[in-house]
Design a protein around this nucleic acid. Structure first.
Lengths: 230, 230
DNA sequence: CGATCGTCAAGAGCAGTGCTCTCGTTTCTT
DNA sequence: AAGAAACGAGAGCACTGCTCTTGACGATCG
């Protein structure tokens, strides 16, 4: 049940991979709306109905691309953050931010697919949750390290008590970090993705020019909001 | 050239308005991808080709909806912020934020149209720039007032000098406000829209529950980042 | 008042889409 | 070797945006 079966399954895996590769290329050039199963089939020299042997629907193919996108972004953030010395917490934060931004501007359509408006009737969430957490896991580890090292200023305000159960998920990602700090990290997080959304989706066109520099400064401000000592 | 001509032009304006109304309703239920000229025509009892007498293309109809969306959001923000006493600068900031969020969650598809991923090959920017500034104009006035009233703490860091020409557009919106403060306002701005993007696009599903409360707290943190005295 | 000219709705049609079904063929399993 | 499962090809359905032509209505000018 191994060699012979894998003979067929190997070509199946090969073709599946080829489909997703072509689809990703189409996505990168045309955008999500321009992704066409027939065009993919045409480029493969297949007939359109044959694609359905590998993906039951167009949305299913899109879901695969979404998961791939989350993983690619997560990997980029992990790689960027890992290149900084562990005790340079501000540097780790800035590197992670840069990782998000640079991946986003390099792959705008894929970024739009995962952080933009949900394209159809939004589908298949369950399989994506694991992949989608990779970037925020990086933030959690970084915050945990910084807090344990005493490198985080405790904010003046208190966490609203009625919101205590709401951030349980985030608390697991940063064990030991007090709630007010978690809230500030979350706020900085939205600032990061708000910026990248603005830039990738073209809201900064004809406005900001040195976007890399402006982003850097903005993320330093966000680090200050978190209370990260420089 | 007045009465008789307007007789025809009146029914034309009437039909144009009816088309956009139906299109907006379809947009609200189906999303941008599900907006179909043929469906609009069907609902009006017209034949599909007749629509093209009023809108030269589907993208053109979408552009109209985008401009309407910017204006609706801008009006909502203006209304929310205007209801707060002029000298309560923190309250004005929070009200403006609430205006953005509440309009976004109430009209998710329209919000996605204007702040989400650009749907086709992004089109017609020039006519939208005026309408799209209405919300940020509110922020600018609020910041100007707060600064003149001495209600803004001057940040410790300096503005990066090489970015000085980059925020010229924002400087016009807040005359007299020093650059470091402008940068912090911009950072809070991205935090606001980052949050609303996350919420409207479903990134907070199964995570945050009391989103209104969490949003409020996050925007208070953002106000602290700006340096708005409470 | 009557001719004219622009505006309009309707219809047919083109090229493209996602998706389904059927029909032989190939490949693997037993 | 026989049966079962997987596969590619093709035709076809319902839908889309968009174009072109045709005929009718209504406003304008001689």
């Amino acid at each position: 049940m191994t060699a012979s079966r894998t003979a067929r399954e190997r070509v199946r895996a090969e073709l599946t991979r080829e489909i997703t590769d072509i689809a990703r290329r189409q996505l990168a050039t045309e955008g999500a709306g321009g992704l066409s199963l027939r065009a993919v089939a045409r480029e493969m020299g297949m007939v359109s109905s044959a694609i359905y042997r590998y993906f039951p629907s167009r949305d299913d193919l899109l879901t695969t691309l979404i998961i791939d996108g989350y993983n690619a972004l997560g990997a980029a953030v992990e790689r960027a953050e890992a290149a900084v010395p562990r005790d340079d917490h501000l540097g780790r934060w800035l590197a992670a931010c840069r990782g998000v931004r640079e991946w986003g501007v390099a792959h705008p359509h894929e970024y739009a697919l995962i952080y933009g408006s949900p394209v159809p009737g939004y589908q298949a969430p369950q399989e994506t949750i694991e992949a989608r957490l990779r970037d925020v896991v990086v933030l959690g580890r970084l915050m945990t390290d910084a807090w344990q090292a005493g490198a985080v200023r405790t904010p003046e305000e208190e966490a609203p008590p009625q919101l205590e159960p709401d951030i349980a998920g985030f608390r697991e990602l940063m064990p030991g970090v007090p709630d007010p700090v978690i809230w500030r990290a979350l706020s900085a997080w939205t600032s990061l993705y708000g910026w990248v959304n603005f830039e990738v989706f073209g809201q900064f066109n004809n406005t900001l020019h040195d976007r890399g520099g402006a982003f850097e400064h903005s993320m330093r401000i966000a680090a200050g909001t978190i209370g990260l000592a420089q």
